[in-house]
Design a protein around this nucleic acid. Sequence first.
DNA 1: AGCACGCCGACT
DNA 2: GTCGGCGTGCTC
Length: 800
Amino acid sequence: MTIAQVIVDVPSAGTDKVFDYAIPDKWANIIRPGLRVAVPFGPRAIQGFVVGLKSRTDIKNLKSIRRPLDLTPVLNEELLQLGQWIAEETLSYKISAFHAMLPAAMKAKYDKIIRRTGEAQLLLDELFEGKQEITWKEAEKRNLLPALHKEIENGNAEVIYRVKNRARKKLIRTVQVNAEQEKLEDLLETLPSHAVNQKRLVQYIMQHPFETMDASQLAKSASVPQETIKALIKKGIFKEHMLETYRDPYEHRSFERTAPLPLTADQQTAIEPIMQSISHHRHETFLLHGVTGSGKTEIYLQAIQEVLKKGREAVVLVPEIALTPQMVERFKGRFGSDVAVLHSRLSIGEQYDEWRKIQRKEVKVVVGARSAVFAPFENLGIIIIDEEHETSYKQEEAPRYHARNVAIKRGEYHHCPVILGSATPSLESFARAQKSVYHLLSLPKRMNNRGLPSVSIIDMREEMRNGNRSMFSIELFEKMKDRIEKGEQAVLFLNRRGHSTFIMCRDCGYVMQCPHCDISMTYHRSSNEMKCHYCGFQSGVPAVCPECDSSHIRYFGMGTQKVEEELAKLLPEARVIRMDVDTTTRKGSHERLLDQFQSGKADILLGTQMIAKGLDFPNITLVGVLSADTMLHLPDFRAAEKTFQLLTQVSGRAGRHELSGEVVVQTYTPGHYSIQLAAAQDYGRFYVQEMSMRKVGSYPPFYYLALITVTHEDLMKAVSVTEKISAFLQSNISDQAILLGPVASSIPKINDRYRYQCLIKYKREPNLFPALRKVLEHYNTQSSREGFSVTIDIEPNNMM
DNA sequence: AGCACGCCGACT
DNA sequence: GTCGGCGTGCTC
């Protein structure tokens, strides 16, 4: 007998192991590693992943697999191994890792029903309303559970657990005419006179003969309702076929094919080692450091072309917010229908279909966000990560994996190159390139000898001293006016949405805080409400100070809404588009706003983070950064790096084509090296300077970090558990490692839960991971019911 | 995670 | 005496 080893769909420390199941004979040829199966688990039925087969087991009362949920494995041998590796590296459960690697449609839904088994009885008839079964939910709602419980005990009803497979394929109904011309004519006469639709449809198909046709399209063309077609199917006039199809998110778009562009000398030099690696079937990680507009994408495209020529496949990762139609167009334009696109703005069904195209080998290239790194290709020839420094490549929920590490792992397996591209590489990557762990490739110049935009730094303290209390410096204001007159476009960047960052009482200093989080609330003018950007709590705006009843309430700080208002006042002739989370929540709104801007329906694009990337519009000649300091003062050792990256990225939006660009950076700390060096577009010097800061602070890339966060509703409980964990870890690490804390998190309370944490900085600590594992096992099983949550983040993006 | 089993307080 | 509160431990 063969036994299946199964990882069950229960994310907990106690169940994070293999469970053995017997394979019923009828499934013996189907059940293989990588397949999803429905298995009994305690009283329930749940989903599981087969990870292996074996011939014997010590388990006494072995249960059997109920049924397979797939016909072919959804995870191949490589991905099964990769999942287990991710679970180890990120200290998460195997089941969570498997789910992260698959489209959401593969995650099973469960339902629970009560079915009657006994003979017809008066009471049962009443409970079931004459039906054979009712859902648990319905029984709960109608408060029937106590009565039903008795019937279950008496053996008149049973509880059935069902695993629902959500991975549904979309089917379309097609029809073929299954009747001679004569028969149709007969029908036309015999149909009753009121059957107008059927008559019209028969006439239509007599005039427009066809082989096979999509039923809904036929209904539309003949202008009859769908039911008419069904009626004729019943009469045997049509033969129907259900045809499997894909939900195509780019159905109504056509992409113009592009040919490879001639490479510049710099591009040629950069691409050469990549081509070598491809042709020698060799794994190597390249860091492609190229200034904005230096033509990195063309290198990607030509490297991919080479990979396709060799009959292998390519994965391109792009930050989620940069996955604009513009970006997709570049790949679809070059490789046409060989491209699948994967990102979170697709519906679950669309994601599943794109994934199936990859699995069935109908595409050769995948362009996608973080999770596309798991594309189930079996013959990978290259993995490209564009904007490799982007923090969105690290998943913020468990499993907290970094797509860069996963890509390199897969590159090793497939013996293929991994390209990390950026104008502002993360310090970690650049340091590895310096140590020749990665192979550094540089593109120091912009394409076609276009100069980098000129950057001027404006000291806002100086403006203030000169009596300008507006949010725009004289220079920025004049330049905006100038662009509007010339019909050119400007981009204004502010890393903060809402209207005012906080409101404060001028008499007593009261600042309105979120009652659930330890953070000040942001004023939103459009809805006239105070919002907490952490938990979403909203409340009205106080007319008087809740503390001292004073009416002197002032609005401090500026957000995008406030800037929009100011622009309307100061530059009423300017047409402004605002892009932030508040204006782009609806599906497709992101794309629509950018289209409007591109087609010249606005002069100024005002926005947050999301406009910093990938915008490539020829008419932008001015970029204004309203406050370069907002990020710089965050309690984060990467604040300077993030500021540098952001300023460099934003500046790169200007003057990418014929017109030259200018950038105005407003700041209260003009002397800071991250601002100065971003203005000079001098990555090299920034790297040296920032590395020395990191060394002094014992931060990455000199040390690795592990952040342990404990949350609890009760402050004292959170503190004491963090202390215990910290003491335990201290005794399990060497004196090479540094343990900091316990300290309150930089946001000490979110959603009514207090947050305490400790941080470990380490270099080589073989005992650390086993110790962390123990912490999780202990606190997540025993204490979860006491309301603790303990999370461990290896190499955290931020310390909050 | 769910669910059953089991051991203590407040009711018909 | 029993119903039901939720603490404990198991699920192949």
